[in-house]
Design a protein around this nucleic acid. Structure first.
Lengths: 128, 128
DNA sequence: GTTGAACTTAACGTTAACGTAAATGCTACA
DNA sequence: TGTAGCATTTACGTTAACGTTAAGTTCAAC
Protein backbone atom coordinates (compact mmCIF):
# COMPACT_ATOMS: atom_id res chain seq x y z
CA UNK A 1 0.00 0.00 0.00
CA UNK A 2 1.85 3.16 1.18
CA UNK A 3 0.23 5.41 -1.39
CA UNK A 4 2.34 7.99 -3.17
CA UNK A 5 1.20 11.21 -4.80
CA UNK A 6 2.33 13.40 -7.65
CA UNK A 7 3.01 17.05 -7.14
CA UNK A 8 -0.15 18.18 -8.90
CA UNK A 9 -2.26 15.83 -6.83
CA UNK A 10 -1.02 17.35 -3.61
CA UNK A 11 -1.25 20.84 -5.04
CA UNK A 12 -4.90 20.45 -5.88
CA UNK A 13 -5.56 18.67 -2.60
CA UNK A 14 -4.29 21.67 -0.67
CA UNK A 15 -5.39 24.32 -3.12
CA UNK A 16 -1.93 25.64 -3.90
CA UNK A 17 0.21 25.73 -7.03
CA UNK A 18 2.87 23.19 -7.89
CA UNK A 19 5.33 26.07 -7.80
CA UNK A 20 4.52 26.54 -4.13
CA UNK A 21 5.36 22.92 -3.33
CA UNK A 22 8.54 23.06 -5.40
CA UNK A 23 9.47 26.21 -3.58
CA UNK A 24 9.07 24.47 -0.24
CA UNK A 25 11.54 21.89 -1.44
CA UNK A 26 13.80 24.63 -2.74
CA UNK A 27 14.14 26.14 0.72
CA UNK A 28 14.47 22.79 2.42
CA UNK A 29 11.08 22.40 4.06
CA UNK A 30 10.40 19.05 2.42
CA UNK A 31 12.56 16.53 0.63
CA UNK A 32 10.39 14.35 -1.59
CA UNK A 33 11.99 11.32 -3.23
CA UNK A 34 12.44 11.06 -6.97
CA UNK A 35 11.77 8.21 -9.41
CA UNK A 36 14.33 7.09 -11.97
CA UNK A 37 13.53 9.91 -14.36
CA UNK A 38 13.61 12.67 -11.76
CA UNK A 39 9.91 13.09 -11.04
CA UNK A 40 9.04 13.82 -7.43
CA UNK A 41 6.79 11.48 -5.51
CA UNK A 42 5.25 12.29 -2.16
CA UNK A 43 4.34 9.98 0.68
CA UNK A 44 2.41 10.23 3.92
CA UNK A 45 5.41 11.95 5.46
CA UNK A 46 5.43 14.83 3.01
CA UNK A 47 1.67 15.17 3.29
CA UNK A 48 1.96 15.57 7.02
CA UNK A 49 4.71 18.11 6.64
CA UNK A 50 2.72 20.11 4.13
CA UNK A 51 -0.19 20.20 6.55
CA UNK A 52 2.11 21.57 9.22
CA UNK A 53 3.36 24.18 6.79
CA UNK A 54 -0.08 25.42 5.79
CA UNK A 55 -1.25 25.46 9.37
CA UNK A 56 1.80 27.35 10.53
CA UNK A 57 1.38 29.89 7.77
CA UNK A 58 -2.18 30.56 8.82
CA UNK A 59 -0.96 31.43 12.29
CA UNK A 60 1.49 33.93 10.96
CA UNK A 61 4.68 31.91 11.31
CA UNK A 62 7.35 32.51 8.69
CA UNK A 63 8.56 29.61 6.59
CA UNK A 64 11.89 29.74 8.39
CA UNK A 65 10.17 29.28 11.75
CA UNK A 66 8.10 26.50 10.28
CA UNK A 67 11.30 24.90 9.09
CA UNK A 68 12.46 24.68 12.68
CA UNK A 69 9.16 23.18 13.72
CA UNK A 70 9.34 20.57 10.99
CA UNK A 71 12.77 19.60 12.16
CA UNK A 72 11.31 19.33 15.64
CA UNK A 73 8.54 17.01 14.52
CA UNK A 74 10.80 15.11 12.17
CA UNK A 75 14.08 14.18 13.76
CA UNK A 76 13.34 11.93 16.64
CA UNK A 77 16.12 12.83 18.96
CA UNK A 78 17.88 9.92 20.53
CA UNK A 79 20.39 10.54 23.24
CA UNK A 80 19.86 12.40 26.48
CA UNK A 81 21.37 15.70 25.40
CA UNK A 82 19.57 15.90 22.10
CA UNK A 83 16.31 14.98 23.82
CA UNK A 84 16.78 17.67 26.42
CA UNK A 85 17.53 20.33 23.85
CA UNK A 86 14.55 19.30 21.79
CA UNK A 87 12.21 19.44 24.76
CA UNK A 88 13.54 22.82 25.72
CA UNK A 89 13.10 24.14 22.21
CA UNK A 90 9.63 22.66 22.02
CA UNK A 91 8.58 24.24 25.30
CA UNK A 92 9.69 27.59 23.94
CA UNK A 93 7.63 27.16 20.82
CA UNK A 94 4.64 26.10 22.89
CA UNK A 95 4.78 29.23 25.00
CA UNK A 96 4.98 31.31 21.84
CA UNK A 97 1.83 29.66 20.63
CA UNK A 98 0.20 30.10 24.02
CA UNK A 99 0.97 33.78 23.98
CA UNK A 100 -0.52 34.18 20.55
CA UNK A 101 -3.65 32.43 21.67
CA UNK A 102 -4.00 34.75 24.64
CA UNK A 103 -3.53 37.86 22.56
CA UNK A 104 -5.97 36.66 19.96
CA UNK A 105 -8.44 36.02 22.75
CA UNK A 106 -7.95 39.56 24.03
CA UNK A 107 -8.63 40.85 20.56
CA UNK A 108 -11.75 38.77 20.29
CA UNK A 109 -13.01 40.08 23.63
CA UNK A 110 -12.43 43.63 22.47
CA UNK A 111 -14.30 43.02 19.27
CA UNK A 112 -17.14 41.35 21.12
CA UNK A 113 -17.38 44.31 23.45
CA UNK A 114 -17.61 46.72 20.53
CA UNK A 115 -20.23 44.60 18.83
CA UNK A 116 -22.29 44.59 22.01
CA UNK A 117 -22.20 48.36 22.06
CA UNK A 118 -23.40 48.49 18.49
CA UNK A 119 -26.10 45.96 19.26
CA UNK A 120 -27.33 48.10 22.13
CA UNK A 121 -27.49 51.13 19.87
CA UNK A 122 -29.40 49.14 17.33
CA UNK A 123 -31.86 47.91 19.95
CA UNK A 124 -32.46 51.50 21.06
CA UNK A 125 -33.28 52.45 17.49
CA UNK A 126 -35.54 49.48 16.88
CA UNK A 127 -37.63 49.72 20.03
CA UNK A 128 -38.83 53.26 19.52
CA UNK B 1 -4.22 67.82 28.53
CA UNK B 2 -4.91 65.57 25.46
CA UNK B 3 -1.25 64.73 24.99
CA UNK B 4 0.19 64.60 21.51
CA UNK B 5 3.21 62.69 20.30
CA UNK B 6 5.81 63.04 17.59
CA UNK B 7 6.45 60.31 15.09
CA UNK B 8 9.74 59.28 16.65
CA UNK B 9 8.18 59.10 20.10
CA UNK B 10 5.60 56.63 18.89
CA UNK B 11 8.15 54.76 16.84
CA UNK B 12 10.36 54.17 19.86
CA UNK B 13 7.37 53.40 22.03
CA UNK B 14 6.34 50.58 19.74
CA UNK B 15 9.82 49.57 18.66
CA UNK B 16 9.35 50.31 14.97
CA UNK B 17 10.92 52.76 12.54
CA UNK B 18 9.45 56.12 11.65
CA UNK B 19 9.29 54.84 8.09
CA UNK B 20 6.89 52.15 9.22
CA UNK B 21 4.51 54.70 10.70
CA UNK B 22 4.75 56.94 7.67
CA UNK B 23 4.03 53.91 5.53
CA UNK B 24 0.89 53.19 7.49
CA UNK B 25 -0.28 56.71 6.71
CA UNK B 26 0.76 56.22 3.09
CA UNK B 27 -1.61 53.28 2.68
CA UNK B 28 -4.39 54.96 4.64
CA UNK B 29 -4.28 53.07 7.91
CA UNK B 30 -3.91 56.24 10.00
CA UNK B 31 -4.39 59.92 9.29
CA UNK B 32 -2.41 61.96 11.80
CA UNK B 33 -2.95 65.72 11.87
CA UNK B 34 -0.25 68.16 10.88
CA UNK B 35 0.95 71.35 12.52
CA UNK B 36 1.43 74.63 10.62
CA UNK B 37 4.76 73.57 9.17
CA UNK B 38 3.67 70.12 8.08
CA UNK B 39 4.97 67.98 10.96
CA UNK B 40 2.73 65.12 12.00
CA UNK B 41 1.36 64.95 15.49
CA UNK B 42 -0.34 61.93 16.96
CA UNK B 43 -3.10 61.73 19.56
CA UNK B 44 -4.72 59.03 21.64
CA UNK B 45 -6.70 58.00 18.60
CA UNK B 46 -3.67 57.20 16.47
CA UNK B 47 -2.01 55.43 19.37
CA UNK B 48 -5.00 53.15 19.70
CA UNK B 49 -5.03 52.48 15.99
CA UNK B 50 -1.33 51.68 15.97
CA UNK B 51 -1.89 49.19 18.76
CA UNK B 52 -4.58 47.53 16.71
CA UNK B 53 -2.23 47.40 13.74
CA UNK B 54 0.64 45.78 15.63
CA UNK B 55 -1.66 43.33 17.29
CA UNK B 56 -3.31 42.39 14.04
CA UNK B 57 0.04 41.88 12.38
CA UNK B 58 1.14 39.51 15.08
CA UNK B 59 -1.89 37.37 14.37
CA UNK B 60 -1.08 37.15 10.72
CA UNK B 61 -3.59 39.62 9.36
CA UNK B 62 -2.52 41.59 6.31
CA UNK B 63 -2.47 45.36 6.48
CA UNK B 64 -5.42 45.49 4.11
CA UNK B 65 -7.47 43.34 6.46
CA UNK B 66 -6.36 45.47 9.37
CA UNK B 67 -7.50 48.51 7.41
CA UNK B 68 -11.00 47.09 7.39
CA UNK B 69 -10.85 46.42 11.09
CA UNK B 70 -9.71 49.94 11.81
CA UNK B 71 -12.62 51.26 9.83
CA UNK B 72 -14.84 49.03 11.91
CA UNK B 73 -13.51 50.37 15.19
CA UNK B 74 -13.37 53.92 13.90
CA UNK B 75 -16.52 54.93 12.13
CA UNK B 76 -19.29 54.73 14.64
CA UNK B 77 -22.14 53.79 12.43
CA UNK B 78 -25.32 55.76 13.01
CA UNK B 79 -28.45 54.68 11.26
CA UNK B 80 -30.11 51.31 11.41
CA UNK B 81 -28.81 49.95 8.11
CA UNK B 82 -25.22 51.00 8.67
CA UNK B 83 -25.38 49.57 12.19
CA UNK B 84 -26.70 46.29 10.94
CA UNK B 85 -24.05 45.99 8.27
CA UNK B 86 -21.34 46.84 10.75
CA UNK B 87 -22.55 44.26 13.22
CA UNK B 88 -22.73 41.65 10.51
CA UNK B 89 -19.22 42.45 9.33
CA UNK B 90 -17.94 42.43 12.89
CA UNK B 91 -19.49 39.06 13.62
CA UNK B 92 -17.73 37.70 10.56
CA UNK B 93 -14.39 39.00 11.75
CA UNK B 94 -15.01 37.59 15.20
CA UNK B 95 -15.64 34.13 13.82
CA UNK B 96 -12.45 34.39 11.79
CA UNK B 97 -10.58 35.16 14.96
CA UNK B 98 -12.37 32.37 16.79
CA UNK B 99 -11.36 29.91 14.12
CA UNK B 100 -7.76 30.97 14.33
CA UNK B 101 -7.81 30.53 18.06
CA UNK B 102 -9.18 27.04 17.73
CA UNK B 103 -6.62 26.02 15.17
CA UNK B 104 -3.80 27.46 17.21
CA UNK B 105 -5.12 25.51 20.17
CA UNK B 106 -5.10 22.31 18.10
CA UNK B 107 -1.52 23.00 17.16
CA UNK B 108 -0.56 23.58 20.76
CA UNK B 109 -2.19 20.31 21.79
CA UNK B 110 -0.26 18.48 19.10
CA UNK B 111 3.00 20.02 20.23
CA UNK B 112 2.25 19.22 23.85
CA UNK B 113 1.58 15.65 22.92
CA UNK B 114 4.89 15.36 21.11
CA UNK B 115 6.75 16.93 23.99
CA UNK B 116 5.17 14.43 26.36
CA UNK B 117 6.45 11.60 24.21
CA UNK B 118 9.92 13.05 24.29
CA UNK B 119 9.69 13.55 28.02
CA UNK B 120 8.76 9.90 28.48
CA UNK B 121 11.72 8.81 26.39
CA UNK B 122 13.97 11.00 28.45
CA UNK B 123 12.62 9.60 31.69
CA UNK B 124 13.32 6.07 30.43
CA UNK B 125 16.90 7.03 29.75
CA UNK B 126 17.40 8.79 33.06
CA UNK B 127 15.97 6.11 35.33
CA UNK B 128 18.23 3.31 34.21
C1' DG C 1 21.73 83.29 14.82
C1' DT C 2 23.82 79.18 14.22
C1' DT C 3 24.09 74.46 14.81
C1' DG C 4 22.57 69.78 15.38
C1' DA C 5 18.84 66.79 15.91
C1' DA C 6 14.37 65.70 14.16
C1' DC C 7 11.18 66.56 10.66
C1' DT C 8 9.61 66.40 5.59
C1' DT C 9 9.01 64.21 0.66
C1' DA C 10 10.74 61.49 -3.15
C1' DA C 11 12.47 57.67 -4.96
C1' DC C 12 14.96 53.67 -5.42
C1' DG C 13 16.39 49.07 -2.89
C1' DT C 14 15.30 44.69 -0.35
C1' DT C 15 13.27 40.29 1.25
C1' DA C 16 9.87 36.59 1.48
C1' DA C 17 6.94 33.90 -0.96
C1' DC C 18 5.70 32.75 -4.57
C1' DG C 19 3.91 33.69 -10.15
C1' DT C 20 5.00 33.04 -14.81
C1' DA C 21 7.26 31.80 -19.10
C1' DA C 22 10.40 29.07 -21.90
C1' DA C 23 12.55 25.05 -23.22
C1' DT C 24 12.55 20.33 -22.59
C1' DG C 25 11.57 15.51 -20.89
C1' DC C 26 8.23 11.72 -19.23
C1' DT C 27 3.77 8.97 -19.17
C1' DA C 28 -0.61 7.27 -20.05
C1' DC C 29 -3.76 5.80 -23.16
C1' DA C 30 -6.60 5.46 -27.65
C1' DT D 1 3.07 4.69 -31.17
C1' DG D 2 1.94 9.23 -31.33
C1' DT D 3 0.39 12.90 -28.81
C1' DA D 4 -1.91 15.34 -24.95
C1' DG D 5 -1.00 16.36 -20.63
C1' DC D 6 1.73 15.68 -17.13
C1' DA D 7 6.65 16.46 -15.25
C1' DT D 8 11.41 18.95 -14.95
C1' DT D 9 14.86 23.11 -14.42
C1' DT D 10 16.13 27.89 -15.17
C1' DA D 11 15.39 32.34 -14.65
C1' DC D 12 13.23 36.52 -14.56
C1' DG D 13 8.82 39.03 -12.62
C1' DT D 14 5.67 40.49 -8.77
C1' DT D 15 3.69 42.11 -4.36
C1' DA D 16 3.68 43.49 0.48
C1' DA D 17 5.95 45.78 3.86
C1' DC D 18 8.98 48.16 4.75
C1' DG D 19 14.68 49.85 4.51
C1' DT D 20 17.69 53.21 2.88
C1' DT D 21 19.67 57.06 0.88
C1' DA D 22 19.25 61.91 -0.59
C1' DA D 23 18.13 66.58 -0.36
C1' DG D 24 15.93 69.80 1.83
C1' DT D 25 13.11 72.17 6.09
C1' DT D 26 12.06 73.09 10.97
C1' DC D 27 12.68 73.01 15.92
C1' DA D 28 15.25 73.48 20.26
C1' DA D 29 18.88 75.00 22.71
C1' DC D 30 22.68 77.70 23.47
Amino acid sequence: MTATYTISELASTYGVSTRTIRYYEEIGLIKPERNASGHRYFTKKEKTQLQLIFRGKKYGFHLEEIKEMIRLFDEDPTGREQLKRTIEYGEGKISEVTKRIEELQAMKDEMNHLMNEFQKELNQLEEE
